[in-house]
């Protein structure tokens, strides 16, 4: 039987389906891409983000150079802001290990909420984001 050309990796997969108040989260092994896509307004942000933070920490040695972390968060509440910050803090560990990483922070045309949210985290953590302009309500593009 022919199998799909999945690259050999010991990394655990990650796939969380989004809801109306929580984002989709996935890691695509073939594309070497991690993405967090959608509104993040849950009341228990720790319950949502801690397993994702743990996943990054658990797999930090296995993550391959060239990985893309993409964020598209049209809305996030302050609890989620903390979760997203903690997640990017763990991603900064991967960056500091010397692996080539790209962090893409998507912003709908001139939206201050989305751009400022990214800039604050970028500045505090000393990371370099690539700010990518996307059209309004771009969830379907990911």
């Amino acid at each position: 039987m022919n199998s799909l050309p999945v690259e050999e990796t010991s990394m655990q997969g990650l796939s969380i389906e989004g809801t109306r108040n929580s984002p989709s989260v996935f890691y695509n092994v073939n594309e070497n891409k991690f993405a967090l896509i959608g509104v993040s307004c849950m009341t228990d942000a720790r319950g949502f983000y801690q397993p994702i933070i743990d996943w990054v920490k658990l797999n930090s040695n296995e993550i391959k150079s060239g990985i893309v972390f993409e964020f598209y968060l049209p809305y996030f509440n302050s609890g989620s802001n903390k979760g997203i910050f903690r997640l990017l803090e763990s991603i900064s560990g991967v960056v500091k290990s010397g692996k080539e990483c790209k962090i893409i922070w998507c912003v709908e045309e001139e939206d201050e909420f989305m751009s400022e949210g990214g800039e604050v985290i970028e500045n505090i953590l000393g990371l370099k984001f690539e700010f990518k302009e996307v059209p309004f309500d771009a969830k379907h593009l990911f």
């Binding site: 720790r46 319950g47 983000y49 302050s78 609890g79 802001n81 979760g83 910050f85």
Partner: peptide
Amino acid sequence: EFRKQLLNPEFNARGGAGLGILQIAKK
């Protein structure tokens, strides 16, 4: 203060640290 709250390693399920109130002021 917002920066300090983000950097604070405490991450409570119930919130209460005041990040939301600071967020309102920042907006």
